[in-house]
Design a protein around this nucleic acid. Structure first.
Length: 579
RNA sequence: GCACCCGUAGUGAAACGGAUAUCACUACAGUCUUCGGAACUGUCGUUCUAGGUUCGAGUCCUAGCGGGUGCACCA
C-alpha cells in the first residue's frame, strides 16, 4: 500500500469516528514544501454538509487522526496540522524517508531493461511505474510523415509528444504498440511526381521536397497540366504499371528509410506502418458499403452529413466525385485496420490541432459503423509551431528541417562543451534533449512560438540542465563509491527538501498518464533537480572524514539520479553520464 | 457569417476549482582557491475587460475586446 493510500485510510477512519460519510476529498502534494508532504481539503468540502466552520472541523478531524497515531507521521503534533482556509497538512517522519530513499536508490535501473515492449509479470518494477492500465493493450499512432515532404520542425513536435506518450503508457502497465501512418498517396504527391518525371533529378530528400513545392505551384499556375496530373493520380491509386508508378515506388522506398533514420535519432521506433494507400482502399470500401445507411450521395460524391444537433461538425466528403477516397475515408480505413489488427483497448493518435474538425467528423461517422472505433479512440491534438513569429507551411518552403535545426543546436553544444571530450552520441543527446524539452514543457494542445534564440536553452529550465544534474551525480557516485549508502539521520538533522520531492514520482506519472500530459513530468523533474542542486551547493556530499554523513547524502544523490533517469526516459531524453 | 481553441511578469512557459499564482530567461546584486559554474543565493516584476456561480475562480457560466484555426470533393 502506498503512503497516500495509508493516509487516505487514516482520514476515512477519522471521518467515520465523527459520523461523516460520503465526502469526496482530495489528498495531494502541495507544491509549497512548507505546507507539508500531503494536503487534504476534506474539512472545506465537508464543512457545508456538516454545518460547521471549515477550520474548526479541520481541528476536530485532526484530533481523531492523532488519537490513532501513525509511525510514519512526524511526532509531537508536528505531523498533522490545519492551515489556511481549512487544509489539513501532513508532514512525514524521518522514518518514512529512511525506508523510502534507499528503496528508490536501489531500484532496478532503466539501463538494464530500457526498450522492453511487453512488461513481464515477474519483472521488478522500475521506480515510477504503475499498474493503472495493467492488462490493457494500448495502440499509439504518431509521427505520421508525408513521404514526399522532408521531416520538419512540426513533425518533431508531433514526434516528441507521441514518443513521450508511448513511454508514459509503458509505465502504466499496459502492452503498448506503436504505429505510423505515412501519406504515400494524394493529389499533392501526383503533382510532385509530375515534376520528377519531367526533370528526372537524383533522388534526395531535398529534390523530393522541391518537387512537392514546385508541383503545387505549377498546378496552381498552369491549368494545362491538370489533365496529366489527374492521370498520374489515377494510375497511382489504381497501382497501374507506368513510369509514374516506378518513380513512386522508388521515392517511397527512399523516403521510408530517411524517415526511420531521422526518427531513430530522436529515439523512436515503430512496430508497424499503415500506408494511406491501403487505408484509402479499405476506407472507400467501407464507406460505400455503408451508403446510404451512414453516408449520402451528393453531387457525384459520397458525403457524411452530421445530425443537426451537432453544429460543430460540418458535412464532409469521404469519396470524391472521381471515385477516389479523401482523407476522411482514409481515416475510416485506418480505424478499421487498427482495430482489426491490434484489437486495442485504447487507441491514441497524435496530430496537429488543425485536424480537430476533421476527426470530429470522422469519429462521428465511425461511431455509426463500429462503436469501438469511436469509444476507444482518443485524439491528442498538439499545437502548431510558429517560427520567429511566422507560421510555417512546408508547401511554401522555407521551413526548417528537423536535421537542420539539430545541426544548429549541435554547434552550440560543441561550443559549450569546450575542452571536455564529449563523444558525438552525447552531443546529439544534448541537442535532442534541448529541443524535446522546449516542446514537452508546454501543454500539448498549446501552440509553441518557437524561436531558437529564446526557446532553446541550456541553462535554467532546460533539457541540458536536467542532464547536467544527472551527469554530475554520476561523477559524485563514482567519487563516493565504497562509502555505501545508508540513509541514517544524525542527531538534530532535518529531512532535506530534496528528500521531500524525490519520492513523489509515481504519483506524478499517474497524473501524467491520466491526462496525457508530459509537461507534468517536466515540471516535476525541474523541481527535483533544483532541490538537489541547492542541496549540493549547501552540503559536501562526499567527505572521507565523515563516512556516515557521506553515506546518507550519497543515498539521496542516488535516489535523485534514479528519478532523473526514469523521468528523462519518459520524455524521450537521454541521460548521459558525462557531458 | 457559423463553429472550435486560446488570452498569465518585458520574453517563454506551469498551475485535479484551493493556501501568499510557480519556474526559467532578461536586468541588477552576490556565492566561487568548484565533490563538474550547463551550478547556487537574493532583488525587481504577472492572471485582457465587465458581470455571475462558489467557503474559495487564472481555471466554471454570460457578455465584450484581442488573437488563432476550421467550414464539400487538398492532406
Amino acid at each position: 500500500m502506498s503512503i497516500k493510500e495509508k493516509l487516505k485510510n487514516i482520514i476515512e477512519t477519522a471521518l467515520g469516528n465523527l459520523g461523516i460519510a460520503g465526502v469526496n476529498f482530495t489528498l495531494e502534494h502541495p507544491t509549497e514544501l512548507s505546507h507539508g508532504d500531503f494536503a487534504c481539503n476534506v474539512a472545506m468540502v465537508a464543512a457545508k454538509q456538516v454545518g460547521k466552520n471549515p477550520k474548526l472541523l479541520a481541528e476536530e478531524i485532526i484530533v481523531e487522526i492523532q488519537k490513532a497515531g501513525s509511525p510514519l507521521l512526524a511526532g509531537e503534533g508536528l505531523g498533522v496540522r490545519s492551515a489556511g482556509p481549512g487544509f489539513i497538512n501532513f508532514k512525514l517522519a524521518k522514518r518514512f524517508f529512511e525506508q523510502e530513499i534507499p528503496n528508490i536508490a536501489n531500484s532496478e535501473t532503466l539501463s538494464t531493461v530500457v526498450e522492453r515492449v511487453v512488461p513481464t509479470g515477474n519483472r521488478v518494477r522500475l521506480f515510477g511505474e504503475s499498474n493503472i492500465h495493467a492488462g490493457q493493450k494500448i495502440l499509439i499512432e504518431h509521427s505520421s510523415p508525408n513521404l514526399f515532404k522532408p521531416f520538419h520542425v512540426g513533425h518533431m513536435m508531433n514526434n516528441a509528444i507521441g514518443e513521450s506518450l508511448v513511454r508514459l503508457m509503458k509505465f502504466s502497465g499496459a502492452e503498448v504498440r506503436t504505429m505510423s501512418f505515412p501519406s504515400d498517396i494524394s493529389l499533392g504527391i501526383a503533382k510532385a511526381i509530375f515534376i520528377l518525371l519531367e526533370k528526372n533529378p537524383e533522388i534526395t530528400i531535398q529534390s523530393l521536397g522541391d518537387a512537392y513545392v514546385e508541383g503545387t505551384k505549377k498546378y496552381e499556375e498552369d491549368e494545362t497540366v491538370h489533365v496529366r496530373v489527374k492521370e498520374i493520380a489515377d494510375n497511382l491509386y489504381a497501382q497501374k504499371p507506368s513510369p509514374e508508378w516506378d518513380v513512386f515506388i522508388a521515392c517511397k522506398k527512399f523516403n521510408i528509410e530517411y524517415f526511420e533514420q531521422v526518427v531513430a535519432r530522436l529515439g523512436s521506433t515503430f512496430d508497424s506502418y499503415v500506408y494511406e494507400s491501403e487505408a484509402g482502399e479499405q476506407g472507400k470500401e467501407i464507406v460505400l458499403k455503408n451508403t446510404p445507411a451512414v453516408f449520402t450521395e451528393s453531387e457525384g460524391a459520397v458525403v457524411y452529413i452530421p445530425e443537426e444537433s451537432k453544429k460543430h461538425i460540418s458535412t464532409s466528403v469521404f469519396v470524391n466525385s472521381q471515385g477516389n477516397p479523401t482523407y476522411e475515408a482514409k481515416d475510416i480505413g485506418l480505424l478499421a485496420i487498427k482495430f482489426d489488427r491490434e484489437h486495442p483497448d485504447l487507441s491514441l493518435f497524435v496530430t496537429d490541432y488543425q485536424q480537430i474538425p476533421h476527426f470530429d467528423a470522422v469519429l462521428d461517422a465511425a461511431e455509426k459503423i463500429n462503436k469501438d472505433w469511436s469509444e476507444k479512440s482518443v485524439h491528442i491534438p498538439h499545437g502548431r509551431m510558429s517560427f520567429k513569429g511566422q507560421k510555417m507551411s512546408s508547401r511554401l518552403g522555407g521551413v526548417p528541417l528537423a536535421t537542420e535545426i539539430l545541426e544548429t543546436i549541435l554547434e552550440e553544444v560543441r561550443e559549450r562543451s569546450g575542452e571536455r571530450n564529449i563523444d558525438k552520441e552525447t552531443m546529439d543527446a544534448i541537442a535532442v534533449g534541448a529541443i524535446k524539452f522546449a516542446i514537452l514543457r508546454a501543454k500539448p494542445g498549446q501552440g509553441i512560438n518557437f524561436d531558437p534564440e529564446t526557446s532553446l536553452s541550456f541553462e535554467g529550465d532546460s533539457g541540458p540542465y536536467l542532464q547536467y544534474t544527472h551527469a554530475r551525480i554520476t561523477s559524485l557516485l563514482e567519487k563516493g563509491a565504497g562509502l555505501g549508502i545508508v540513509p541514517k539521520y544524525h542527531d538534530g538533522e532535518e529531512v532535506a527538501d530534496v528528500e521531500r520531492v524525490v519520492y513523489r514520482l509515481p504519483g506524478i506519472v499517474e497524473n501524467a498518464i491520466a491526462e496525457y500530459a508530459p509537461q507534468f513530468i517536466v515540471t516535476y523533474l525541474l523541481q527535483v533537480a533544483q532541490a538537489f542542486n541547492s542541496y549540493y551547493a549547501a552540503n559536501t556530499i562526499v567527505d572521507a572524514a565523515n563516512p556516515e554523513t557521506s553515506a546518507h547524502r550519497l543515498a539521496i544523490a542516488q535516489a535523485v539520479q534514479v528519478v532523473l533517469k526514469n523521468g528523462l526516459w519518459l520524455l524521450g531524453i537521454k541521460a548521459p553520464n558525462k557531458m
